[in-house]
Design a binder for these strands. Structure first.
Length: 211
DNA sequence: CACCAGGCAAGTA
DNA sequence: TACTTGCATGGT
């Protein structure tokens, strides 16, 4: 196949079907979830988000008004709760400093918005790209541990490779389409969870078996 | 019991 | 620059 990256996408899509990502009702919820899910199982994140929803705290104004130590208690199930409470507060401050509303913060062009997200202590490349793609609807490809593991096990990348190098592999092989990027990353997570676990080096029935 | 989950920043040499 | 460590809950 000429374009392996596109070939893999088609195999995954045919196998799993559409994933309907990101699980979240509003861009704000998606953004908060992106921080909470850092190195953490999504099940734990949903419990934390539910705590916030129950107290009507899952909005820019209400969350900004909540003291950081109370925020930490609300998001306890997500793990690293003290750290993540600070990270969320850092992000809210950055939004206040660049527009004040989530809409105006997201209104910046992709490169500018990515830089502003990366300025926040606690937001690295994956979280920034997740927010760009799934909350702000900008075509920024998300690379995560699953993406790396799947590509490495299929000998498409070396083990030691940087985030931007993997991202470039996708952006240079695909049309710059947020809908496509959205689906592709979601499919990688689905594949990783079911067929490419860290503890299961070989997996049978993997849709990429013949790659 | 050990290991893992949709990372990131700070410390050390 | 290149490693290492801290952060933490909940499921398997």
């Amino acid at each position: 196949m000429h374009n392996k990256i596109l070939n893999i996408y088609n195999l995954l899509y045919d196998f799993f079907g559409p994933q309907n990502w990101w699980p979240g009702e509003t861009p704000f919820e998606v953004m908060v979830g992106a921080v909470l899910t850092q190195n953490t199982n999504w099940n734990n994140v949903t419990a934390a988000l539910e705590n916030l929803k129950q107290d009507n705290l899952l909005a820019l104004e209400t969350l900004s008004a909540l003291p950081v130590h109370l925020l930490a208690e609300k998001i306890r199930p997500a793990g690293y709760f003290n750290l993540k409470a600070k990270r969320l507060k850092n992000l809210l401050t950055q939004i206040q400093n660049h527009g004040g509303s989530l809409e105006s913060f997201f209104a910046a062009d992709k490169e500018t918005l990515r830089e502003r997200l990366l300025e926040v202590k606690g937001i690295g490349p994956e979280t920034a790209d997740s927010i760009l793609l799934y909350a702000a609807d900008q075509a920024s490809f998300v690379v995560d541990a699953y993406t790396h593991r799947v590509l490495y096990r299929h000998h498409l990348i070396p083990e030691e490779v940087g985030y931007l190098d993997i991202q470039e592999l996708f952006t240079s092989s695909l049309p710059e389409d947020p809908v496509l990027f959205n689906e592709y990353h979601a499919l990688f997570v689905r594949l990783g969870k079911e067929y490419c676990k860290k503890s299961t080096p070989r997996c049978s029935g993997c849709p990429l078996e013949k790659i």
